[in-house]
């Protein structure tokens, strides 16, 4: 399998604060990686570097073997931010038409994908309503729709389960597993250990900017004594 993401000893500081320190990580094609850690562990900073929003202070980072800031690379990447309120005066059709246009998709292709995704994310009942009337869970679903609109090979999801009710969680989990079955590579950051345990092939745990655990799920998943929750607690409590 080829590496979709290759992170080689990267570091990033904000002034005196070291957000990410000497991080090395890779993600193979078709894998789902759970990128875990407490608040301020460096997950979002790493994701921003993976999306090419800024470069690391030191070390190398590549996505599909290229600079993540390249437009060609970003054509193959879908991203869903933790909480985005999107454009309140648009409806879901207009929102997806906008993002589709940004991805260079033709109007016919956008229409076809929009119909598919609105049905897949359960947003049909929203119809022509503007996004300002959406609940948080509906906005999350709109967020996932815009992320996969252009059928990216790599999907980066930042806290995708935030604000979702149990039914919506199940639907999102099914959707992520369906994308994996299609050969997509997925990295998602989360506090939701149970979701990670149900979906991931591998987990990486960050603590204070450092990677403290990177293991296949088969080595951490539940036999009652050693489940992901206990390992997470153990890792965080270890000085």
């Amino acid at each position: 399998m080829s590496s979709v993401i290759r992170i080689d000893t990267i570091s990033k500081s904000y002034g005196e604060c070291k957000a990410v320190s000497q991080l090395t990580l890779s993600l193979q094609a078709g894998e789902i990686l759970g990128f875990l850690g407490t608040n301020g562990a460096g997950k979002t900073t790493t994701i921003k570097m993976l999306l090419g929003f800024f470069a690391p202070d030191s070390g190398k980072i590549s996505v599909f073997g290229k600079d993540p800031a390249d437009a060609v690379t970003r054509q193959r990447v879908g991203f869903m931010p933790e909480t985005a309120y999107y454009y309140p005066y648009l409806n879901i059709y207009e929102l997806l038409a906008f993002y589709g246009g940004l991805c260079g998709m033709s109007p016919a292709h956008i229409r076809q994908r929009t119909e598919e995704l609105i049905e897949r994310t359960g947003l049909q009942e929203a119809g022509d309503r503007q996004l300002k009337t959406y609940s948080k869970g509906m906005l999350q679903r709109a967020g996932i729709a815009q992320a996969i609109l252009h059928d990216p090979d790599l999907l980066i999801l930042d806290e995708p389960f935030t604000g979702l009710d149990p039914l919506a969680r199940i639907h999102l989990r099914d959707l992520i597993l369906e994308l994996k079955a299609k050969g997509k590579t997925i990295l998602f950051s989360s506090h939701e250990l149970s979701e990670a345990e149900l979906m991931c092939d591998r987990v990486a745990i960050m603590k204070a900017g450092k990677l403290v655990l990177d293991k296949p799920m088969s080595e951490v998943a539940g036999d009652g004594n050693t489940n992901l929750e206990r390992i997470f607690l153990h890792v965080l409590e270890t000085p």
Partner: peptide
């Protein structure tokens, strides 16, 4: 509104 993140993640300079 954090819409800048999905915006910048798209393949547009």
């Amino acid at each position: 509104s954090r819409t800048i993140y999905p915006l910048l993640s798209k393949p547009a300079s």
